[in-house]
Computed example of a mutant assay.
Amino acid sequence: MKRRTFDKLVSFVGLGLAALLLIFAGLLNFGANFANDSVASQLENQNISFPAEDAMPSETKDQLAKWAGMKVVTGEMARDYSDLYIWEHMKGSAIAVMGKPATYSEVSGVYMGLVRGGSTDVEKIKQYGDLRQTLFMGNTLRGMLLEAYAFGTLGVIAGYAAIASLVGGVLFLLLGIAGLMHIRRTPEDATI
């Protein structure tokens, strides 16, 4: 095979890969911006804010202090609000009624047992009913916030992939151009 033919082949493949990577970079950047903008706008509409530092749960106050008084607008903030604020309140509510942390399904089972079992302890039924409602609402909000966190994380990953694709595309573009420039210096009769 002639060297010039091989150089042309390699150079055009490099330019094709450069074009492909640059297209990927654009699409990944679009995806990253879409994810980040969607998360921010959806969380903005929810109007969820962290409380002042002195109103935060003592168990997670150190981790949440950086967000004190701020509105939840990023995936990371949504995760912290869910796992470090709501979850602590849910555990505290369950401990107050049951003496231990409990899940919605555990509390619901006890509540349904009291109701269906014909319990006459109205105060206990009310406590478990209220706790059941609190845990249900907490789990629902936590699920929505953690979904925003997951979507936001995918946006961040897409952003990094866009940068990597852009760098790769530019590198292949430069190498392809260098290869085409090298063809002019290669003798006609050179072979591989």
Rank of each mutant, 00 (worst) to 15 (best):
N47Y: 02
A52Y: 08
E53S: 11
E53I: 08
E59Y: 01
K61N: 07
A65D: 04
A65T: 15
A65C: 04
K66Q: 15
W67A: 01
M70K: 15
K71F: 06
V72N: 08
V72S: 06
V72Q: 11
G75R: 06
M77Q: 15
R79I: 01
D80C: 06
S82V: 01
D83V: 03
W87M: 14
W87N: 14
H89A: 11
M90A: 12
M90T: 01
K91M: 08
G92Y: 05
G92S: 14
G92P: 03
A94E: 02
I95K: 15
A96N: 11
M98K: 14
G99R: 08
G99I: 07
G99H: 09
K100P: 01
A102W: 04
T103Q: 09
Y104A: 03
S105T: 13
G109S: 03
V110E: 14
V110M: 11
V110H: 06
V110P: 00
L114F: 04
L114D: 02
R116S: 09
G118W: 05
G118K: 04
S119V: 01
D121A: 11
I125P: 09
I125F: 09
K126N: 09
Q127G: 04
R132W: 01
Q133D: 14
Q133L: 10
L135G: 07
L135N: 10
F136Q: 10
T140E: 11
T140P: 00
T140K: 10
R142P: 04
R142T: 12
L146H: 11
L146I: 05
A148P: 00
F151K: 08
G152S: 08
L154Q: 07
L154K: 11
G155Y: 07
V156D: 12
V156T: 15
V156I: 12
I157D: 02
A158I: 03
Y160D: 10
Y160N: 11
A162Q: 02
A164T: 08
S165N: 07
L166C: 11
G168K: 01
G169V: 01
V170R: 00
L173Y: 11
L175N: 05
L175S: 04
G176N: 05
G176L: 06
A178V: 12
G179K: 07
L180V: 12
M181H: 08
H182N: 15
I183Q: 12
R185S: 10
P187C: 03
E188K: 10
A190R: 06
